[in-house]
Structure formats: structure tokens, C-alpha cells
């Protein structure tokens, strides 16, 4: 039986403001989904809420992974079940090398013992190195990555490639790629897209969250969903992505009578400046 991420009637708010307003989605291992939406539609809120970011409040609905409800679980327990989030803005952790971090992470998600055990047995160094080297080679990542501090001083493209390397090492069942193409030039998008393609197979379900269809030129999804104002308003196949590429989000907005929302980031900036004033 393949694993499945099932989201039902999910409502999420941030600082008491509802962002996700009743979202339903099922992703099976081996399937590739794209979730497309304009800025402010709730894309990042969804991915953070699924991974358990404490800042995001789930007000209603259920999410199960292979039948297990996950919304009450800590983020690390979700990771251990096989859920992975490639962050839009990966956090830098100075002083922690990619290799040390990955060895701990891989050991944690693979360990048999129940969650949160403080004595995670690390996988043997030689075995780990061999595996890391192989994955780096497969993804065309320079070996010096292993010695660098996690995301510290990485360029935009390096950060995204580091996320994909982690994806490759952790071997999740379902991976969410949150705007993995944002902030990258076209070459970098191609490299990241090709890397993800290398990892796609019957054991990996993927949810690609994106504003622009350009990453989808490299990773062709079977299912395309449009997120607008916290709900999936349309689902379809590749043709839906093509329609968005051609006409943008306006026709869909008009169809559902949803005015253009203020982009999330700008909204935050305005809020904080109002605060200061």
C-alpha cells in the first residue's frame, strides 16, 4: 500500500487572520502535484502548517499521513513519518556543517526507536560519507558543500540545491517544494528542476508550490491545482498550468469573484511600518 497525504477541510490562520479557508488535497506516493497561486493566496501558509511551524495556527480540519493524524505531531515526528518540506527561505545555521547536520538528520529519520529519543544512534561515518558522496555526485553538487555551514552565506541557488540534497538524503515519501524556483535565474531553475527529476520515482510524492509555471517545464506534474484566497478553486491536468502561463490568474479571479489580494510580503512590510509609525 502506498503512503498518502490527505488534507481535509483545512483552516489555518496566522495571528488570528484566516489564510487557509477549507482546503482539500490528496497526494499519493509517486504522484506529482503542482499547487499554483498568486502571492497572498496562502501557499507558504499551507506548507508551513503541514510541517508544523509554531507560528501557524490550525483552526479546523484534518491532515493524515498514511492514516496517521499529523497535526498534533511535532515537526520531527512528521519528518520521521516521511514528510519533507523544501523551504522557500532555508534558515542559515552558522557553525553547523552540512555533513554533521545531515548525518544527524538522516540517522533520526531512519532510526527505529520512537520519536524524540535523545540518543539517536548515528549511522556509521563511512557509510554516511559514501552515501552523501554518491548523492552529491548524482545531483552535481560540489563536495565542498559537506564542509560548509548550513545555508550560511549560500547564494539563492546554493540554498535551493542544498534543500534538494537534503531531500535526496532523507528519502521522504512526500515532499513539498515551497517556491523552490523563487529568486533563481533561469539556469538555476533548470538545475534545480533537473535535480528534482532525478529523485522522482514511484516512492516519492511531490507537491510543487509555485507562483510561476516555469519550474513545471522541468518537472511535469500530473495534477495541477489553483489556490485562491485559501481554497483550491480549480484542479486539472497540465492544460491548467498552460492556461495560467498564457493568461495569468486574472481570468480565474474574475470567475470566482476574488479581488487581487495584497501580496503577503508587502502586506507584512506595510503592517510593520504602520506599527513603527
Amino acid at each position: 500500500m502506498s503512503d498518502e497525504l490527505v488534507i481535509e477541510d483545512l483552516h489555518v490562520s496566522v495571528e488570528d487572520k484566516p489564510i487557509i479557508k477549507g482546503l482539500n488535497l490528496r497526494i499519493k506516493q509517486g504522484e506529482i502535484h503542482a499547487l499554483m497561486g498568486p502571492n497572498g493566496s496562502g501557499k507558504s501558509t499551507l506548507s508551513n502548517a503541514l510541517m508544523g511551524h509554531p507560528h501557524y495556527e490550525v483552526d479546523n480540519g484534518t491532515v493524515t499521513f498514511n492514516g496517521t493524524p499529523i497535526l498534533e505531531l511535532e515537526s520531527n515526528e512528521r519528518a520521521r513519518l516521511g514528510l519533507f518540506l523544501a523551504f522557500q527561505y532555508p534558515t542559515a545555521i552558522p557553525g553547523v556543517t552540512m555533513a554533521n547536520f545531515l548525518r544527524m538528520a538522516v540517522s533520526s529519520v531512519r532510526s527505529e526507536s520512537s520519536n524524540g529519543s535523545e540518543t539517536t544512534e548515528l549511522i556509521p561515518m563511512r557509510e554516511f560519507r559514501r552515501e552523501l558522496r554518491a548523492k552529491m555526485k548524482q545531483l552535481g553538487v560540489d563536495e565542498s558543500f559537506a564542509r560548509r555551514y548550513l545555508n550560511d552565506g549560500f547564494s539563492g541557488g546554493e540554498k535551493k540545491r542544498a534543500e534538494i540534497l537534503q531531500l535526496a538524503m532523507l528519502e521522504p515519501k512526500v515532499a513539498i517544494l515551497d517556491e523552490t524556483d523563487s529568486g533563481l535565474d533561469i539556469d538555476a531553475v533548470r538545475i534545480v528542476g533537473e535535480s528534482v527529476n532525478q529523485l522522482i520515482g514511484p516512492n516519492l510524492g511531490v507537491l510543487i508550490i509555485t507562483h510561476y509555471p516555469r519550474l513545471l517545464n522541468y518537472i511535469r506534474p500530473e495534477y495541477v491545482h489553483v489556490l485562491l484566497d485559501g481554497r483550491i478553486v480549480e484542479s486539472g491536468g497540465w492544460e491548467l498550468a498552460e492556461l495560467l502561463e498564457e493568461k495569468g490568474y486574472d481570468p480565474i479571479r474574475e470567475k470566482y469573484g476574488i479581488a487581487e489580494t495584497v501580496p503577503e510580503t508587502d502586506g507584512e512590510a506595510e503592517e510593520s511600518s504602520a506599527f513603527r509609525g
Partner: peptide, 15 residues
């Protein structure tokens, strides 16, 4: 954010 990032990769809070 650092704690969340590491936990999302399978590390416990104390780890």
C-alpha cells in the same frame, strides 16, 4: 526558525 528548520529534518527539539 532554526529550531523549526532542524526539527523539520527529524531532529528532536533538544537535539
Amino acid at each position: 526558525e532554526q529550531v523549526f528548520y532542524l526539527m523539520s529534518r527529524g531532529l528532536s527539539r533538544s537535539q
